[in-house]
Every structure is written in structure tokens, then in C-alpha cells.
Computed example of a mutant assay.
Amino acid sequence: MAAKRPLEEDSSAQPAKKKKGISVGPQNLPDGTYRRKVQKIKRDLIHKAKVKKAYAKIKAQEQEKLSSGPRYFSQDDKDGKQDEQPASLELHPERQAMIDAAAEKERQRQERQKSDQEKEKEGKSRRKKRPKPNPFAKEMEIAQKKREEAEARRREKELKAKEREAMRRAKRPDQFGKKRLGRESKVLLSKVQRITGQLQQ
């Protein structure tokens, strides 16, 4: 009879299973929209896993530093007795000096700002702004003259039209066929006054 095979000494020492990578979706997708989407999801998952791993590593380091770092306890605290004296509210001299320096700088800045504002007010009161020259002043004057001339011509035209109408009515004979010289003389007089007034101007 053949000898039996000896039992393995350590049955638990089997080779460790190889870790399977992150798999998302089917592996046999054709190249296209769905495959790119699956790849994007996989990249995001890998990135998140790396971030988690880095965070865990940093957290472990920080905890290690805290546990092994220097302890700021007095001998009484180690024994379990705590001091009953409250912490003092006085600032450290260097810290106090820094706060004083910052307050002094702020005060100087406010004084400078006030003096600048006062100077600006004085400058405004001393200097009066000259009126800005209008580049189209000449053209505006010419346009105004043209408007006035057109208005004068229009008025003169209206007056002449009224005079013609009055003369036409005045030249109508009365019921007996005679001329109305009184009416004609009034129209002629107003016409002469208008002409002489224009000549005087």
C-alpha cells in the first residue's frame, strides 16, 4: 500500500486572492456614447477612492502626532488633580504690542483721509469750473438766425395775405355800385404803416 501524502502544515497559508479592480458596466461595450459614459464613471470612482485613501493616511498621521506629541499638563494634572486658578485674561506683551501698532496705523490712516477730504473741499471752493466750450456754438447761432428769418418771412406772408383779402373786400362796390373809399383808405393806411415800420427797422 502506498504511503499517504502528508498533510500540509499550514492550511491557512493559501495564496492571497488578487484584488479585483473597479468594474463598471459590461466589459464588451462597443466604442461609443455608453462606453465613454461608463469610463467616466469608472474614472470618478477611482479618483474618489484615491482621495479617501489619502485622507485616511493624513488622518492617521495627525492622530499619531497628537498621541506622541508633547503634553502640556502639569504634574498635578497627571496625578488627577487640576488647578483651581482660572486662566489670566492679560495678553502676551508681544501680542499687545502688535495690537497697539495696528490701532496706531488705523488712526494715522483715518487722519490722512480726513486731511485729504478737507484739502479736496478747499480745492473745490477755490477753483470754479469754467464753462465747457460748445463745439457747435457757431452752427447753433446760424441755425437760430435761419429760424428767425423763416419766422419773419412767414409772418410777412400772412400779413400780405390779410391785406390782399381786406383790399379785395374793400373794393367791392356797395349796394348802389359805388366804391367804399373809407374801407380802402384804412387798408392802404395799415399797409403804409407796415412798410414804413420795416424801413425804420
Rank of each mutant, 00 (worst) to 15 (best):
M1H: 10
A2S: 02
A2N: 09
A3P: 04
R5K: 09
E8K: 03
D10M: 08
Q14I: 15
K17G: 12
K19A: 01
G21L: 01
I22T: 14
S23V: 13
V24K: 14
N28R: 02
D31M: 11
D31S: 15
T33K: 12
Y34M: 15
R35S: 10
I41F: 13
K42R: 13
K42M: 03
D44L: 08
I46D: 03
K48P: 00
A49R: 14
A49Y: 14
A49I: 12
K50S: 15
K52E: 02
Y55F: 06
Y55A: 14
A56C: 01
I58R: 10
K59L: 01
A60R: 02
E64V: 04
S67C: 08
G69W: 04
Y72V: 12
Q75E: 06
K78Y: 12
K78S: 00
D79R: 14
D79C: 06
G80W: 08
Q82A: 13
Q85T: 13
A87L: 08
S88F: 01
H92G: 06
M98D: 11
D100Y: 05
A103G: 00
E106N: 02
R107N: 07
Q108K: 13
S115Q: 15
S115E: 09
K119V: 04
K119T: 09
K119L: 15
E120R: 12
E122G: 04
K124G: 02
S125G: 08
P131R: 07
K132V: 12
P135N: 09
K138R: 15
E139S: 05
E139H: 12
M140W: 08
E141F: 03
E141W: 08
Q144K: 13
R147C: 00
E149W: 03
R153Q: 05
R154V: 11
R155C: 06
E156W: 03
A166R: 06
A166I: 00
R169L: 01
R169D: 08
P173I: 02
L181S: 05
L181T: 09
G182S: 05
R183D: 13
E184I: 09
S185A: 13
V187E: 03
V187R: 05
L188I: 03
V192N: 01
Q193A: 07
L199K: 10
Q200R: 11
Q201R: 13
